[in-house]
Design a protein around this nucleic acid. Structure first.
Length: 103
DNA sequence: CGGGTGACTTCCC
DNA sequence: GGGGAAGCCACCC
């Protein structure tokens, strides 16, 4: 109703945008929110294509690992920390920031 | 329409 | 904990 089933990348953007500040979501989560849990790769690719119009830095890999390499990955970690996200080793504390419930 | 690609995920050693 | 391989999906040319 409020939407007419837009393209995938559109849903990805919407999902990423609704990630609360100080929290992070995995590609799989975002993909799931978009309707296809297995399209995690697509999420990453779409995010890149989307550009900086969304909080892409709130999207991390499974387990809270930053998959980005080089500068962008470093920047992402810095941004997350700036939002209050805590890291352990080189991973986000999904137990506290994971949108998903901790088991 | 077909093929290549990727910021993925998961399993196994 | 680290490395390698396979599977999956949608986008782009």
């Amino acid at each position: 109703m409020i939407e007419a089933m837009p393209g995938f990348d559109t849903k990805i953007k919407a999902a990423v945008r609704r990630i609360p500040k100080g929290k992070v979501a995995t590609y799989g989560e975002v993909a799931g929110a978009a309707g296809v849990p297995r399209a995690a790769r697509m999420v990453a690719f779409t995010l890149k294509r989307a550009g900086r119009t969304l909080p892409w830095h709130r999207v991390v890999g499974a387990g809270g690992r930053i998959l980005l390499r080089g500068e962008p990955g470093l920047e992402q970690r810095m941004r997350l920390e700036a939002e209050g996200v805590k890291f352990r080793g080189g991973r986000v504390r999904m137990e506290s920031h994971g949108v998903r419930k901790a088991t």
